[in-house]
Design a protein around this nucleic acid. Structure first.
Length: 455
RNA sequence: GCGGUCAUCGUCUAACGGUUAAGACAUCGGUUUGUGGUACCGAGAAUCUGGGUCCGACUCCCAGUGACCGCCCCA
């Protein structure tokens, strides 16, 4: 008993010393910020897949999948040089061929690239595209914040009317609803077009400049980099300054103002509760006019953005495509799941087998594989434990699985062309001819369902 | 990228600068050969990695790695 332990410890310590040539140790651990999605969590993922794909279909979105790797340039140009994503969060590397490439930090850039590359501006408008998959950001992991995370993404191209904005927000709301997440907050804002945005930022900068000595250190720095962020500071003194700062919605040009106003009217019409958040800015450069975010609802301040999006009317043209307005949004799947668990929303549970197939003896064991597939073809879900020999241990497994019936196929039954059908609740069992097995099982399961219905 | 907390079987916990690192759940096997649930018996399974201090480290120190928290930011 003791000896093997000692041997083990010895080899453990000796190995690295023994090895002359440097052998890279095998690290049995996922890379920082990356996670396995284990079977126990799959029901949540499946639920999100179902809900998101169904809504995509119902609202006329076609699925598109683009590569995980793109030229680095694509993201730098689209997302914006000054943004955090581009400055410090990209997984970039050089290929053997010398190309500078990056693991996509978001989905929109690749989709826009595909839109242009495949001449999708010639397709009927609006062109609605749904996409889902992993995205990568090299930042510091925390709960609900990973280096690899998954998004579901909806984009609509070719329509600038704010009714599309409203519809996209409606979809976001429907997803939340269908997942069973109750309390959320929809925050909307308009950051205008490049023209009125520039004017507004100038106005804001002037205002902040006049209050500069009332701001915290961080905000003094923010003023240079991104003055809009000052409005978001949580320091008391900064919030006081922010409270009377000029707001972007008050300084939109006529076109942007009307666009935003009509969006709000559409939202009212939909009875979607929203909050206008003048401080809502979003970190990506490409947004114009409408921006919005969905927050997990509840209590004590722990802010958690489940998703967000906005309009990017200039992006396609900026990239060299036909002038095409667009709007889109994305949810983070991991964050949705976190929220589902918090509010105990129901994950998707696939049907469990209600029948167990037990075999006994060599002959029966050989026949059991075929019997299994025949029943499966007839739509009967089976569980089994073919590797186990004794009937006792197989019944234990059957019991643990909570099946309603156990089929027992032994030497005798195999020769007779019969199968024993045992009711696991009552313990009653009967011998059934093989050719009547499917009908018998179906009948019994149906009868049981009636019983369980009343429980 | 900055600051902080933490790290023991698969999971949850225990222990002490010193004999064999303990328990529960889970897993596997058994309690007479073709019948499950309860009970009983048994087995396997861990001190994150690398250094240092010490006669002796799971325990103290340093570094690495990872998780988490607060910023930054976002999904």
């Amino acid at each position: 008993m003791v000896k093997p332990k000692k041997t083990k410890k010895l080899t453990k310590k000796k190995l690295p010393i023994k090895a002359e040539e440097p052998v890279e140790p095998l690290i049995l651990q996922t890379i920082r910020g990356m996670k396995d999605i284990l079977p126990e969590n799959q029901p949540y993922w499946e639920q999100i897949r179902r809900v998101s794909e169904r809504l995509a279909r119902d609202y006329g979105f076609s699925r598109i999948d683009t590569p995980i790797v793109e030229y680095t340039n694509l993201f730098v140009r689209n997302i914006g040089k000054g943004t955090d994503i581009v400055e410090k969060e990209m997984y970039s590397f050089v290929t053997r061929g010398g190309d500078k490439v990056t693991l996509r930090p978001e989905l929109t850039a690749g989709i826009c690239r595909a839109f242009i590359q495949h001449g999708m501006h010639l397709m009927p408008k609006p062109l609605k595209l749904f996409s889902t998959g992993p995205v990568y950001r090299y930042d510091r992991p925390q709960e609900g914040r990973y280096r690899e995370h998954f998004q579901i993404n909806y984009d609509a191209f070719g329509e600038e009317d704010s009714i599309l904005d409203a519809q996209v927000i409606q979809i976001a709301h429907r997803i939340i609803q269908n997942l069973g997440i109750k309390s959320i907050q929809i925050q909307v804002n308009s950051i205008g077009c490049p023209t009125c945005r520039r004017d507004y930022i100038e106005l804001l900068t002037n205002y902040l400049e006049s209050k500069k000595n009332k701001l915290c250190q961080d905000c003094k720095r923010r003023m240079e980099v991104n003055p809009l962020r000052v409005l978001d500071c949580k320091e008391d003194k900064c919030m006081q300054v922010a409270a009377s700062a000029p707001q972007s919605v008050d300084h939109l040009c006529e076109e942007c103002r009307v666009h935003f106003k009509s969006l709000l009217e559409y939202l009212d019409e939909l009875d979607l509760p929203y909050i206008i958040n003048p401080r809502l800015v979003r970190g990506l450069d490409y947004y114009t006019k409408t921006v919005f975010e969905i927050w997990s609802g509840l209590e004590n301040g722990k802010k958690n953005a489940l998703g967000g999006g906005g309009r990017y009317d200039r992006l396609i043209k900026m990239m060299g495509g036909e002038d095409t307005p667009a709007i889109g949004f994305a949810f983070g799947i991991e964050r949705l799941i976190l929220e589902m668990k918090k509010v105990q929303a129901k994950p998707y549970r696939p049907a469990r087998p209600k029948v167990f197939l037990a075999q006994l003896g060599n002959l029966a064991k050989r026949k059991s594989l075929k019997l299994f597939s025949e029943l499966e073809k007839n739509g009967i879900l089976l569980a089994e434990s073919f590797g186990r020999g004794s009937l006792k241990s197989q019944l234990k497994v059957a019991n643990k699985l909570g099946v309603e019936l156990t089929l027992i196929l032994g030497q005798k039954e195999t020769l007779d062309g019969t199968v024993i059908v045992k009711n696991m609740t009552t313990g009653v069992q009967e011998t059934v001819a093989a050719d009547k097995l499917v009908d018998t099982i179906k009948k019994k399961l149906k009868a049981d369902n009636v019983v369980t219905y009343h429980n």
